[in-house]
Simulated scan of single mutants.
Amino acid sequence: MSELIVIGYDDHAVAAKAFKAVQKLRDDHAVELKGLAVVRVDADGETHVDTPKKSEEVALSATAGALWGLVLGMVILTPGIGVVGAAVGGLIGKLSQMGVDNGFRNKVKELLEPGSAAVVIMASRITEDRFAEAMEPFGGTVLKTTLPEDRERELAEQLTGSGSDAETAG
Results as ranks from 00 to 15, higher is better:
1 M>K: 07
2 S>D: 09
3 E>S: 09
10 D>F: 09
11 D>E: 13
13 A>H: 09
19 F>Q: 06
20 K>Q: 14
23 Q>W: 02
25 L>I: 06
25 L>T: 02
26 R>H: 11
30 A>S: 12
34 K>N: 15
41 V>G: 00
41 V>M: 02
42 D>E: 06
43 A>M: 11
46 E>N: 12
50 D>L: 13
50 D>H: 11
50 D>S: 13
53 K>Y: 11
54 K>M: 12
57 E>G: 13
58 V>F: 06
62 A>N: 10
65 G>P: 00
68 W>H: 05
71 V>P: 01
73 G>N: 09
76 I>Y: 01
77 L>R: 09
80 G>N: 10
81 I>M: 12
82 G>R: 03
82 G>V: 04
84 V>R: 11
84 V>W: 08
86 A>N: 09
89 G>T: 04
91 L>G: 02
94 K>A: 05
94 K>S: 03
95 L>S: 04
97 Q>P: 01
98 M>Q: 03
101 D>Y: 07
105 R>K: 11
105 R>H: 03
107 K>T: 05
108 V>W: 00
109 K>A: 09
111 L>N: 02
111 L>F: 03
113 E>I: 11
114 P>W: 04
116 S>I: 05
118 A>C: 06
124 S>F: 03
125 R>G: 06
127 T>W: 05
128 E>F: 10
132 A>T: 13
135 M>L: 15
135 M>T: 08
137 P>C: 04
139 G>F: 02
141 T>M: 08
142 V>R: 15
147 L>Y: 00
149 E>P: 04
150 D>K: 09
150 D>C: 05
151 R>Y: 10
151 R>L: 13
151 R>K: 12
152 E>N: 08
154 E>M: 10
157 E>M: 11
157 E>T: 08
159 L>M: 11
160 T>L: 08
160 T>E: 10
164 S>D: 12
165 D>P: 06
167 E>F: 14
168 T>G: 14
168 T>V: 15
169 A>S: 14
